[in-house]
Simulated scan of single mutants.
Amino acid sequence: MSTPPRNPRPHTLDRTDRRILEALQQDAGLSNQELAERVGLSPSPCLRRVRALEEAGIIIGRVALLDPKRLGLELTALIHIGMDRHTPERFAAFEERVTTYPEVQHCFLITGQTADYLLQVVVPDMDAYQDFLLRRITRLDGVSSVHSSFVLRRVVDRTALPLSYVPG
């Protein structure tokens, strides 16, 4: 996936662009022919629009969503991490290292908490989590505090963005 611009301007979408994006958010594996049929276009204009949305940085990638439990990844943890110093260098080093850990699904730099970062991590079980925490997270330079919470149930678990807020 490409990295979107840091402060992108909201892109204006017309009705057809919205329909394309909604369809792809539901099923990114649609062929161009299937997508064109769903949104009421012929294949060539549909493909041009998809490419334009990719070039504008709106579509940044397409993925298959996997069921973690069916793969034996039973435990999702939310980890609040506090840093000892709030310097750009310390944050950059932490972020560079944490991106290499496949267990980390999301890493957010946050405010309004006693923590600096919130990580979402998926592992098979508590033993794997303990190993991840003790061998990786707590050994990172600058980590001064760690607070873990464990997901009991996913109540809302969506990847689709609310396009109704996008200018059109």
Rank of each mutant, 00 (worst) to 15 (best):
P45G: 08
N32I: 15
T87I: 08
Q25K: 03
M83S: 04
R18G: 05
L73F: 14
P5K: 14
P4F: 08
E37P: 02
E37C: 03
T159D: 05
R136H: 14
Q130M: 06
L35V: 09
G82I: 01
S148L: 05
E55N: 11
E34D: 15
D17W: 01
Q33H: 08
S2F: 00
T111D: 06
T3Y: 00
N7M: 11
F150S: 07
I137Q: 06
N7I: 08
E96L: 05
G72K: 09
V156W: 07
D17A: 05
V123A: 13
G29W: 01
I20E: 03
G29V: 02
L21R: 05
E34Q: 15
S42Q: 12
M126S: 13
R153D: 14
L75P: 03
L35N: 07
R62H: 04
L163E: 02
L161W: 01
A23E: 08
Q26A: 14
Y117V: 11
T159Q: 12
V156M: 13
A64Q: 10
L71F: 12
C46R: 04
T76V: 09
L140Y: 02
L118C: 10
G112A: 12
R90H: 12
L133A: 12
L140A: 10
Q25N: 11
F91L: 14
Q26M: 05
D67K: 13
N32T: 15
L75E: 04
R38G: 04
T111W: 06
H80T: 00
V63S: 00
L41C: 10
T100N: 13
D84T: 12
R153P: 01
D116G: 06
T87E: 12
Y165D: 09
G112Q: 13
V122E: 11
T76M: 08
L30P: 07
P167F: 02
L119P: 10
T16W: 01
G112N: 13
P68E: 09
D157Y: 03
Q33V: 13
A56K: 05
G61L: 04
P8A: 11
V39E: 05
I81G: 01
Q120N: 02
D125M: 10
R19P: 00
L66V: 15
R62T: 03
D141R: 14
I60D: 00
L66Y: 12
A92W: 02
V123P: 12
K69V: 13
E22T: 11
V156K: 15
D157L: 05
R136Y: 10
P43G: 04
S149T: 13
L35T: 07
L41E: 13
L109N: 08
Y117Q: 06
L134K: 10
I137R: 05
V98G: 04
L24G: 09
P8L: 11
G168V: 07
P68A: 14
F94T: 09
I58G: 02
V166I: 11
P162W: 01
A36M: 09
R51W: 00
P162R: 06
A128V: 08
L161M: 07
L109T: 13
T16Q: 08
R135Q: 15
P124Y: 07
P10T: 10
P10F: 04
G168F: 03
L13C: 05
T87N: 08
S44H: 08
E95I: 10
L13I: 06
R135W: 03
G142P: 06
S145M: 06
L35Q: 07
I20W: 01
M1A: 13
A52H: 05
L78P: 00
R51N: 10
L53H: 03
M83L: 14
Q33N: 09
P162E: 09
